[in-house]
Design a binder for these strands. Structure first.
Lengths: 358, 358
DNA sequence: CTGAAAGCGCTTACAG
DNA sequence: CTGAAAGCGCTTACAG
């Protein structure tokens, strides 16, 4: 006679989760038989399958993943370390992971690093303690050395880093061709007629350095080298707003006609600061972001941006981990191609400017 | 002679994760001793602790959480089911969970439902198979009956639902006083002088019905009952945009002077549609959202909204689960208070309207 | 502190 | 199909 509430009596007081044994006893079959049924084996007669399943329901049996993993030495778990749950970029990559993982019959287990190295470290330790089939690291904030040390110790766990390229041969990576992305942004603006295109940097964020280098190269390629300018920024809205503020302060009326911002969130910060200052976008200044996360696609923002194929990056990450788990020995460095998405924050430069551009 | 790459040889080929046994052998102590050191017991001499720890490093030992849990029948894991990773609201609640869980020495393990009932169901099954200390459900999209059935089976796992109140006595809940939130929104608008305040509904989302009912009650309380109007909407930007579209179509020039929208994301959709239609906010129409997720706080949106204390809700959820795990038998229904956050999308109604409000 | 042992809940052969 | 057994990697007493 247990009421539902009795079920919550603390363990010490006797609550016990039903096991295979309980089911076997009730169904009048062997434990091995129950194990087969639970895992959906075909080598079981329909009659006994029925009895077992109904016994499972009756006692409320739920397989213990820990016991199963211990016995199998294969958890079927794919660990995902998300450095920052607030960044919509990662949510979309996780969609891709989810999609990639289903056909493989694995389960995604996530832990968040909360943008803090210590928390991330603990989360990663926990994930590794789960002895997962593999681990996907989304945008770690750990220093390269720390990350490698942490992963190096756990040995035979395939790890793939998305966004960030880790030096170690132990770690696969899936990242975007940052230089190509920067080229797309600059080319688009140059084609519209912009000559003075300033880059607001990502300040140490994953890929930011390559993005900035790509920008410089692109400016050179378009013969705009003397107009190239990189301002410190960051990957957050506040950083974007601050960078815009700094720019307004420094340039006064003589603003660049176009801004290529390190990512979408920062670009939103730029847009708001410019709006406050009464600087029209794209009338007076054009703005291009990076990522194409949903903020960019929001009709309210309607930001022209460089798309990262987030879903595909997730799929590729799963593929990399699974291959490595299956025995591939060489590290894989997958690089995906960006794509320009033109929305409403870019237009040809105003002809009536006082700065007078070429 | 194993190079780092050899570590990735598939299991079948002999890769094996180091165990307690390996460490004990290397350090020349018993397994029990290693176990004590690894768990940080004080009853170990410094000398042998040192030897053990260095052996751990040398062989790359990492405790197997599955084995530990199996032995302890306590995983120290708090499972978190996130219905939708894309909703910034949940990310902030998770921050609270993270904060609450650290002092308790537990680990957060997350799984995402991807807004799909089937995926959510599988994710929840997996979380329960981890035999966690407890489970926190953030905004389930499962039907009440399904959710209860799923949880009811797993028995002694404390479960708390955040945002959504589940009928079952088995499930604790942490939610906001929706009626009070609606009252804050309506009172704010009424004080500004608005009389025609339309509610854009959340259409079945968690809490939406109570929010709408709260709106009606508040309109009654403010003597605005005859001006009360609820339009179908939803909890997404697209739904908000569609609702605004519908409203524009139906009302023509005779728009309500204020909109109370079911949540922030939908409110952003409303703002963009209104902007496209050339309807000034707050000049012509005031808009209030719900949640105070970061989209609302964005300087670009600057949405007046009703704040849910997300961090606190996370903390309370952890507390509820832990208490229940410790033996509390009665279900707990925690209700938190909302708070009005005034930003730039609300203002007194225009006096120069052709609709002419009282 | 050590060492031997039992047990956690499963899976996996293996003989019948 | 059954039944008995070993083993996965730990923890937890317990006698020394």
């Amino acid at each position: 006679m247990t009421t539902p509430q009795d079920a919550f009596t603390p363990r010490a007081a006797g609550a016990r989760r039903p096991t295979l044994e309980d089911v076997a006893r009730l169904a009048g079959v062997s434990r091995a038989q129950v194990s087969l049924v639970v895992r959906g084996s075909a080598r079981v007669s329909d009659a006994s399958r029925e009895r077992v399943l109904s016994a499972c329901r009756e006692v409320g049996y739920r397989p213990n993943l820990h016991a199963r993993t211990l016995a199998q030495t294969e958890s079927g778990i794919l660990g995902v370390l998300v450095s920052d749950l607030h960044n919509p970029f990662f949510a979309e990559v996780v969609d891709g992971l989810q999609e990639g993982v289903r056909p493989a019959g694995k389960q995604l287990v996530m832990a968040s690093g909360g943008r803090s190295p210590e928390v991330e470290r603990e989360a990663l330790e926990m994930l590794l303690s789960l002895h997962p089939t593999g681990v996907v690291v989304l945008g770690s904030v750990l220093a390269d050395a720390d990350l490698e040390e942490l992963l190096g110790r756990g040995l035979p766990v395939p790890v793939v880093s998305v966004t960030r390229v880790v030096g170690s041969a132990l770690v696969d990576s899936v990242s975007i061709d940052e230089a190509a992305g920067a080229e797309l942004a600059v080319a688009h603006l140059a084609e519209l007629g912009h000559r003075r295109i300033t880059h607001l940097d990502g300040a140490g964020g994953a890929g930011a350095a390559d993005r900035a280098a790509g920008y410089r190269a692109a400016m050179r390629r378009h013969g705009l080298q003397d107009r190239a300018e990189v301002c410190p920024g960051g990957f957050t809205e506040a950083a974007g707003a601050a960078a815009a503020e700094e720019l307004l302060h420094r340039c006064g009326e003589d603003l660049p006609t176009a801004l290529f911002v390190a990512n979408d969130i920062a670009a939103v910060g730029v847009l708001s600061r410019l709006a406050e200052a009464g600087v029209e976008v794209p009338g007076r200044v054009s703005v291009v972001g990076f990522d194409d996360s949903w903020v960019a696609g929001s009709r309210f923002t309607a930001l022209t941006t460089v798309r990262q194929p987030k879903l595909r990056m997730g799929l590729l990450a799963v593929a990399a981990v699974l291959e490595r788990a299956a025995g591939r020995r060489e590290p894989s460095r997958t690089v995906v191609e960006p794509e320009l998405v033109v929305r409403s924050t870019t237009a040809p430069p105003a002809r009536v400017g006082r700065g007078g551009q070429g």
